[in-house]
Write a protein that binds this DNA or RNA. Structure first.
Lengths: 604, 604
DNA sequence: TTGTCTCCCGATGGGAGACAA
DNA sequence: TTGTCTCCCATCGGGAGACAA
């Protein structure tokens, strides 16, 4: 049960095995793109927390005021999880404060050093379950495997030496047989399946690089990975309190022996990032300190580190209800990409508990096929592409053009290159890195912008790339209720943040302050500041109360290490005997005798 | 591969499973006695460090000045290791400072709540290796198992339900068959062996309590557990420096996949206590703070927490070279106890590097059968029993009587109940818990004892139980060179601490100070203090340079996770395939083709 | 083209007495 | 009395074509 050691390439470090970026990319699938080193990205702590295995017990309040943090990628490590075989990346991020004026060229795309061929297949029950082999799709065999000599042999076969993500080499017998003939992996496959604990639904990725060296990677099928914005608001409302221990972190007590230690990866897409590591990263980020994030590329998971360009593009769209958007979804075997369309039903800051003024998942979308994209009821603007908007016909040109040509609301600032919420009395202020209280934000420099500063804090939202910006205006109690480039009615009370999906608590939080958004300021790009309210962009016809289908505050329904992992038991060590010696004593008829039942049996 | 879950008794906590004391005792074996709760014990940090998996990288210098610490046992937990199945105890110890005047009754032996029967057997290759069963010694079957009905059945059999140390129940078929007839465990046994990773040489302990409930425990055979005083001196010489990473802590890099995580217990008797945990405990102890120690009962290992009574008894013996001693050694299956005899060749403070004036392993013994007891070249006085001494005939009564009747050297103090080295300017002094430097000890209260205080520090050595005490006199540089009740020549330079087993470094340490021990003071028990030197007790004929057979400063030769653990591989998960698919491709003749060899084979 | 079934063979686990130490 | 051997049978892994989706 050990791959041929002589062929081993890399040792397997404890943290994870380093991978070539192109192999990593192939394992992750084409739909995941890691921003290149030195590129500018936005980091979204909310999104990061969605990836955590459990709700952080404590989050520094500071981070709620920095839901969007512009960073530069200082380093990337392409890694593979030694337990689950999944690939992940570790990004070192350096927050860019407004006065840190580095201006790297934005897209230093590393030249793809080596083109690799890859093919992913979702394992069928036949591939994974019984002792048998692996049905190799013809296309895979012909593009990835060395050709067989069909002319000389009836059933040509060869042994493939394939390197896994840890550098271990696995030998698989590749044979072309059966009637009708087909490609199969036989000997060695079963060992691989057992070793990697593959089950039907998992995918394998077969690759070959330009030197014909072959690789194999794994993508785990996920079950019940449904931590979405709903969970997030619950999560956030636990701030400062002691959250109840989420299912995912509960030890499966009552399990026997040391069996619980085996196969230590969860299939629900969580359990990878600890709550603490996420909370720490978010806190460092909020303090503009360098930090690291670990990112598992997973279908259905929203990136929390996004190329600055993409985010800024999305910001330039005057999101309104009624817009038609599409979202690309890759099938799990990454063989197809499907575009799903939907209609924006609400485009305001979602009520994320304590998260104020975050564009994260600010769009609520009714998908045309609601059964898919369950996780994507709320999406972030950069996740979708505009198909058309319900705007007047004069705006009906392509989304790409609209980015540049449309007229937005916004407040010009005298600064360019600022990230969101750049320097509103946060760590670079005289208060430095002290633990901020909410009221600290009242000390924001007055008169920072030309707009009216009603009561408390002002945040600048500028968009370096294109130069549009917006004014965010806080409420009386220092809870900033900024606005993004969101179309809003001039009526004071129909903001979607009052939608009935609010939990009672957060609702009162939100409303109790100042009765919501005070006013919106609308400015033409590049124009002097104007004060006043304009309805702009799209029609204001959105219902804004559409979110009724959200589960109202339920707990996350998943549990790690769920039972049913029978396919993992085959190689389990002590304590994981499958019900063991119960059918024994063939000639013995069980007669119970006190605590130790004594079964006397007829001898032969 | 899972014991019947319905019968499970306790869940298995991560730290270890709690056990009934009597079951624990049976599993550990009769030769290991845990001091009862509330009893007085001496804690020997040197002995503790011998149990550590690796040399601590740093030891607080403080602890070298407290090699013997009187404590009270405040709590005991009887536990079982979830990995190795071995039992161990966690003792909570409260150092007794001289002014803490608690006087519990010393021996509050907990009444043995339940008598249990136990039988231990070392597994033969037949028991452990092949798929077969377990040969049950007749005595075991008759005393532990419920009786079979031999009258009615030709081959009577029953199923035994046996609880392991974690509370899991295992079913074993017990059958009486074969010609000649014998007791065997068949079905279920193999699962147990594989699950617990038992190999020939390991022992199982079968037990039954008064209610006939049966239990099974494991004692691991040890291989290459030879950390003795030699290692300790090496160890100590690393003080303050960065020790080279010992074999036992090196990760077995280059090993494949996640296979390294499996079966995580070492068979060499180490790897249980981390260096850090030992160092922390020793430091706390030296600071007279409550601390915890974990103790694995292992044949051949010397207890580092010893009943005060035993230690004090031993202290009352005027140890001299030439004395005949015996030491009880239990066979691994605890079926026999053998007494080995030997002659004390040196009875002075061994040179333990930085350990000054420690009675730990102060006796050097030439055993009559030198091949056994390799670990016991140096023993602590309480480990052996006196057989006879080379004293004049008038002292030739029994050792027990000699304890009380012999005449000792010593200095009476005005304090009773002091532990060794009780309060010589150590943590309770005004310097408090600051990190002490060696020279701090020059500030010891002057005139503390009636004896001459030559240059620097004075430590009191009093013996609460019997009232004998000794004067310890340090050297100029604050390195205390106290003396115990050791016979020494009045010649100044033949102390065994100058033996050629010294490393050059420690030798210079030792000698450079003041030219060794200054003088000895001899006192009659219970008598007023006399000042002066007496040769006492045994003849001073010892060579004192006998330690030539010690390996001179070599490194510890053991390595955890050594290879050869093939018997563990059977249930290993990924990455531990045994050389796997190499003999495959029956019809394929291996032809190498660049990096991926392509073996074309004849089809059928 | 490929997923699943059944067949079938060889390896292995493991229970039995034989036999010897 | 008990350790080890060999025998032998049941089970299982897994490689093959059949067949159907």
């Amino acid at each position: 049960m050990r791959p041929s050691k002589s062929r081993q390439v890399h040792p397997a470090p404890v943290q994870g095995s380093h991978l070539a970026p192109n192999i990593w990319q192939a394992c992750a699938g084409g739909s995941f793109r890691i921003p290149p080193v030195h590129s500018r990205v936005y980091y979204f702590p909310q999104g990061h927390i969605e990836h955590a295995s459990s709700a952080p017990l404590y989050l520094n309040p500071l981070i709620f005021y920095k839901p969007v943090i512009l960073c530069r990628v200082s380093a990337i490590e392409f890694l593979a999880d030694p337990d689950s075989e999944e690939v992940f990346a570790k990004l070192s991020l350096l927050p860019l404060s407004d006065h840190s004026s580095d201006h790297f060229p934005d897209s230093l795309e590393a030249p793809d050093d080596d083109k690799i061929m890859s093919f992913a297949k979702v394992l069928t029950p036949s591939d994974a379950n019984n002792g048998g082999g692996f049905s190799v799709p013809r296309y895979c065999a012909e593009t990835i495997f060395p050709p067989l000599d069909f002319s000389k042999f009836d059933r040509p076969n060869q042994v493939l030496h394939v390197t896994d993500v840890h550098g271990n080499v696995w030998d698989f017998r590749h044979i072309y047989r059966g009637t009708p003939r087909r490609h199969l992996l036989t000997t060695g496959w079963s060992k691989y399946v057992n070793s990697k604990k593959l089950v039907a639904g998992d995918s394998v990725v077969l690759m070959k690089d330009s030197s014909e060296k072959m690789f194999i990677g794994v993508r785990r099928a996920m079950r019940s990975a449904k931590l979405t914005a709903v969970d997030c608001s619950i999560l956030s409302s636990q701030l400062g309190g002691v959250g109840n221990k989420p299912e995912g972190e509960r030890q499966q007590e009552g399990h026997v022996g040391s069996g619980g230690k085996e196969g230590g990866f969860s299939r629900n897409g969580k359990g990878k990032l600890s709550a603490k590591e996420v909370a720490d990263a978010a806190e460092l980020a909020a303090q503009e300190m360098p930090f690291e994030v670990v990112y598992y590329p997973r279908v259905g998971w929203t990136d929390f580190v996004v190329k600055a360009e993409d985010v800024e593009k999305a910001w330039n769209v005057p999101w309104t209800a009624g817009m038609r958007v599409k979202k690309a979804v890759e099938t799990e075997d990454s063989s197809r990409i499907t575009w799903f369309q939907g209609t924006v039903s609400s485009a305001s800051f979602p009520d994320n508990g304590l998260w104020r003024s975050s564009p994260w998942r600010m769009l609520q979308v009714m998908w045309d096929e609601p059964e898919v994209l369950q996780n994507a009821k709320r999406v972030s603007p950069w996740e979708v592409e505009l198909v058309s908007s319900a705007l007047p016909p004069d705006t009906a040109f392509s989304p790409a053009k609209r980015f540049r040509a449309a007229h937005y609301c916004g407040v010009a600032t005298d600064r360019e290159g600022d990230p969101f919420f750049s320097n509103a009395g946060l760590p670079n202020s005289p208060m430095g890195h002290s633990n901020p209280s909410l009221l600290n934000y009242n000390t924001v420099p007055a008169g920072m912008q030309g707009a009216r500063q009603d009561l408390s804090s002002v945040l600048s939202l500028s968009n370096s790339g294109i130069g549009n910006s917006h004014l965010y205006i806080g409420n009386t109690f220092g809870n900033m209720v900024p606005m993004m480039r969101t179309s809003m009615s001039t009526e004071p009370n129909i903001d979607s943040s009052q939608s009935n999906s609010l939990s009672p608590e957060s609702q009162s939080n939100w409303q109790g302050a100042t009765g919501l958004v005070l006013f919106g300021t609308i400015i033409r790009s590049g124009q002097p500041v104007e004060s006043g309210s304009h309805a702009l962009g799209g029609t204001a016809d959105e219902g804004s109360n559409e979110s009724g289908s959200h589960a109202p505050g339920g707990t996350a329904d998943e549990g790690s290490n769920e039972s049913g992992s029978h396919a993992l038991g085959g190689t389990a060590d002590e304590g994981s005997n499958e019900s063991g010696s119960h059918a024994l004593g063939g000639t013995a008829d069980e007669g119970s005798n006190g605590r130790n039942e004594t079964e006397e049996g007829v001898g032969q």
